[in-house]
Design a protein around this nucleic acid. Structure first.
Length: 287
DNA sequence: GTCCAGGCGTCAA
DNA sequence: TTGACGCATGGA
């Protein structure tokens, strides 16, 4: 059942595929040849740059047009960032203006970001791909065969020991507890109708989800942009580049949301990515 | 070997 | 309410 590969073409000005994928919002992608393979639900695409355009090849063009958030005016967001009164934000926006916030599956985001806590990105990706290969449905496609993220029913059947065997560490307990606290996978999708506050409190009531992970799920799983994840990197930014003195992560997050409103999530992502890039450059410079 | 990672739960004070 | 601590694991 091979279907036709369709092609989406996007102007590169305010869409950069590498920055969008590498800015820490997605774990299910990898480099191949001159581009990137991206997996979501039971769908896959291959994206690469050619001249002034980004080309996305897929049998599900409508899905990935929305997935990459191509309908939104990112130039507007960028323009609103560069008139803010903070030089670090302005530099971040100039550097990362091609970042889009993806529209990912909220069920997958919820579980994947539980793995992210106190963990590094390469390792998060590795754990997720092991989980999918071992327990996910195999999907065939013209781009390459891949494995779907395991269903809720499947997750319920995985023991803590099996999670440990995949490198989950103590997060295995959380997967066990959270998967058993839902009856149907759709319950997680359906929470999209809640407002930020209600959704946030539902999420942090789950074992293993605190304010940081909840904010990531709000932003990356539900596209609620009035959210602002505070991790170790954003804490550095808050202290070093905004002169912040609050200690409580929840309060710091709220402080940024009060400042940036509906742009919070986008600006957060510009800055997170930029800070990590600068750090890497610094390390490269020392070598 | 040591430090740290897109933190959180627990338990004292 | 806040602060300290332990937690599994592997990347750098």
């Amino acid at each position: 059942m091979t279907e036709m590969l369709n092609t989406i073409k996007v102007k590169k000005g305010f869409f950069n595929i590498r920055d969008t994928l590498e800015c820490g919002q997605i774990f299910r992608y990898f480099q191949k040849d001159n581009g990137f393979v991206v997996i979501s639900e039971d769908k896959i695409c291959f994206a690469y740059e050619e001249g002034e355009e980004t080309i996305i090849e897929t049998t599900h063009p409508e899905y990935f047009r929305h997935f990459f958030d191509l309908e939104r005016d990112y130039e507007k967001i960028y323009r609103e960032a560069i008139v803010e009164d903070n030089v670090f934000l302005i530099n971040s926006a100039k550097s990362g203006k091609g970042i889009h916030i993806l529209n990912q599956n909220s069920y997958e985001m919820l579980f994947e970001f539980v793995i992210s806590q106190n963990n590094n990105i390469p390792r998060i990706k590795k754990i997720i791909s092991t989980l999918c290969e071992r327990y996910g449905e195999k999907i065939h496609s013209n781009i390459c065969d891949f494995y779907r993220f395991p269903s809720l029913e499947t997750l319920k059947g995985i023991s803590v020991e099996e999670y440990m065997g995949m490198g989950f560490g103590y997060r295995g307990e959380y997967f066990n507890a959270i998967s058993n606290s839902y009856k149907r996978e759709e319950e997680i999708e359906e929470m999209a109708s809640l407002d930020e506050e209600a959704l946030f409190s539902k999420l942090i009531s789950l074992k293993g989800i605190g304010p940081k992970v909840a904010n990531c799920i709000l932003l990356f799983g539900y596209h609620k942009t009035r959210s602002f994840p505070i991790d170790t990197w954003m804490m550095k930014i808050y202290q070093q580049d905004f002169g912040g003195e609050l200690k409580d992560n929840k309060k710091i997050s709220q402080w940024f949301i009060d400042k940036f409103g509906d742009n919070s999530g986008y600006f957060q992502q510009y800055m997170f990515y930029y800070k990590r890039q600068k750090e890497r450059e610094l390390i490269e410079g020392i070598k």
